[in-house]
Design a protein around this nucleic acid. Structure first.
Lengths: 198, 198
DNA sequence: GTCTATATTGCGATAGAC
DNA sequence: GTCTATCGCAATATAGAC
């Protein structure tokens, strides 16, 4: 049971860091603040982390992988034609960015705070994700179900919108998560010229 | 002529700060780096600025005002119907974000680094700008020339895309500024359901 | 107005008692 | 594994010679 306690402490520290990095930024956040928020003294943190950057890496590390997995699963599980698969992928893409807004925001904002090595590994994963979204779009176009303009810019557009959502979404806002996802999905389908009632 | 030299020095310092804040972020940038980049020693900076935050304020301060002015002028100068005016406004909105990418990026990224007072003054200006864009969209819809879905989210969408452009645009990239502006303008008009060949 | 030198503060990280 | 105490360093900002 000792190791469960250890894991809980580490999680509490990550949660505190996530919150503070999100609101203040990585550089402006001190380990003393993180320790206080997690209920520790500074020195104790080092029983659970290697360094401050290690903490940032832990937070950023899983986000891209999870996003990739979530969207691919949604596409695979979708029933219907190419457009339905694309729609399911976009919905998953958008919902993920809202649901995990803080991590997503940190991931998009603090790339510059990582060491060169860590940064390039994450950049590589992002490029692969962009490429996957691009394939979804081109498949729809090739099937004659959409009238795209520029694949790469469509991808950028979808990423920009989702990233932006991560910066303002609140669960108690004017629109529910489902409504936001539905509206932005319609935006996306309109943008790539899908021929149906959107 | 002495005061011209003063102004040039101040400008060099702002330029250096702009570049460094853009690439490293405000907190990660030191006054020593800014001084070096501008060709001064640290102490000399204080003959031209009050503080580090003052420098950030100088940079962020004019961006929103300039954007607002630029877009309103473009709309006023546009010839043609409501859609043409909207199109001109969107093109100015997009071009501004690309042309002044560094300042725009800093303005969108470092709001958290400002003191409460400075931050709220800028937030207020942004809300007014969003409101202006919303009016343009609603006018087109009310004239029966578009089929909008949700005004506020359309505005967010346009801001998200332009902001994103500011983070990747390079003058020597695959697409020229004119091409980027044209493509994103078509995206926008499609998104709000303008009935014409876009 | 620029420089060197320094005051002051607070950071990330470590040592060692309990 | 947590704490207190502290190291070593670099930050913003200031003082005062030139």
């Amino acid at each position: 049971m000792i190791s469960n306690k250890r894991r809980e402490s580490a999680k509490r520290i990550r949660q505190a860091a996530k919150k503070l990095f999100f609101t203040q930024g990585y550089d402006a956040t001190t380990l003393r603040q993180i320790a206080f928020e997690a209920g520790f003294k500074v020195g104790s943190l080092y029983n659970h982390i290697d360094s401050k950057e290690d903490l940032l890496l832990q937070i950023m590390g899983s986000v891209i992988d999870d996003l990739n997995e979530r969207v691919r699963e949604a596409v695979a599980a979708a029933e219907g034609d190419t457009i339905e698969r694309l729609r399911a992928g976009l919905a998953a893409h958008l919902a993920f960015h809202a649901e995990r807004a803080q991590e997503v925001f940190i991931g998009n904002t603090e790339l510059k705070s990582l060491s060169e090595e860590a940064r390039s590994s994450i950049t590589q994963k992002r490029l692969e994700y962009e490429s996957y979204l691009g394939d979804l779009i081109e498949t729809a176009d090739a099937a004659g179900l959409a009238d795209t303009i520029d694949t790469k810019l469509h991808v950028y557009s979808f990423i920009a919108q989702a990233t932006h959502i991560a910066s303002w979404y609140r669960p108690d806002g004017r629109l529910s998560l489902e409504e936001i996802v539905e509206i932005y999905t319609r935006f996306a389908l309109r943008e790539i010229g899908v021929f149906s009632d959107n």
